[in-house]
Design a protein around this nucleic acid. Sequence first.
DNA 1: CATAAATACTACTTAAAGGTAGAATTAAAT
DNA 2: ATTTAATTCTACCTTTAAGTAGTATTTATG
Lengths: 137, 137
Amino acid sequence: MQLSNSSQYAIRILSYMALEQDSKLLNATQLAATLQIPYKFLTKIMTEVVKAGLVVSIRGREGGYRFEKPTSQIIVSEILKIFNDSIEDKQCVLGIGFCNGVCKCALHDQWMKPKLLMQKMFEESSLADIAGKGCKQ
Amino acid sequence: MQLSNSSQYAIRILSYMALEQDSKLLNATQLAATLQIPYKFLTKIMTEVVKAGLVVSIRGREGGYRFEKPTSQIIVSEILKIFNDSIEDKQCVLGIGFCNGVCKCALHDQWMKPKLLMQKMFEESSLADIAGKGCKQ
DNA sequence: CATAAATACTACTTAAAGGTAGAATTAAAT
DNA sequence: ATTTAATTCTACCTTTAAGTAGTATTTATG
Ligand code: SF4
Ligand code: SF4
């Protein structure tokens, strides 16, 4: 019952980036050192984030990563989607998920509430929200 | 954001067993066939459940598994505990979990609610509750 | 142009979860 | 006593997540 390491790292990286100037260029070496994430793993993750279009990368000397759109428009659940970690409607605690409304186990109704809260949390939190209110991780 | 396969299987097995008579002896072959769980994996899981004391096993011919105490006294979170899948208080979405109340990220407060609901769900549901209200999986 | 500093790509290694095989042990039934 | 049907044990195999290594590519700077 936890996000994958990749998702966790990605959220930490991007919310740290959001704390800095939106437009500022940040490179992998600095990020890895600051956030204590293995450099090679960080670049692997960031490459996926770039492919997903959440961030642009500038290659070559003096390059780095930068948001293109404002961080208020980048939603946490978009990040999770990249690593197949976002919460689907049909997703069930028991991994079955096909039980119809009539024939359902007793966990079903109880599971609805936390599931919806988590979906809401991930779908209604932007990076700006996260970064603005918190401390550096 | 899902339980491990072992936990999922264990919940399904035990809640199915709870549907049958509490005292009835059920064997691995039948359970595996009924629940569509690989026989060898089922016995592996059940051995751990037995070791945890949730179920007693009768070895030898005509043997099988049976609850010793009533299913109303077996709590879902006890099952999860066996597979290190229960939700801890300090557990954090980002796997950090050491941030104090003063310095916390914006996910922190939002995460509290669903986390507490899930803990409540797992700690306040007995097998009798689950089995009584639902259909066979 | 040459160099240096950055990301991207390909491939590999390691660790953990998920699952399987076979033999050992137990005990009822005959 | 032997057989048969059950759990348990030990060891292994497979798949996926996590992490690493090395090289290629890109580009500003001098
Ligand atoms: S009824 Fe139970 S097993 Fe079926 S989808 Fe709902 S929570 Fe999952
Ligand atoms: S502040 Fe954020 S990172 Fe820290 S424990 Fe709370 S949710 Fe986790």
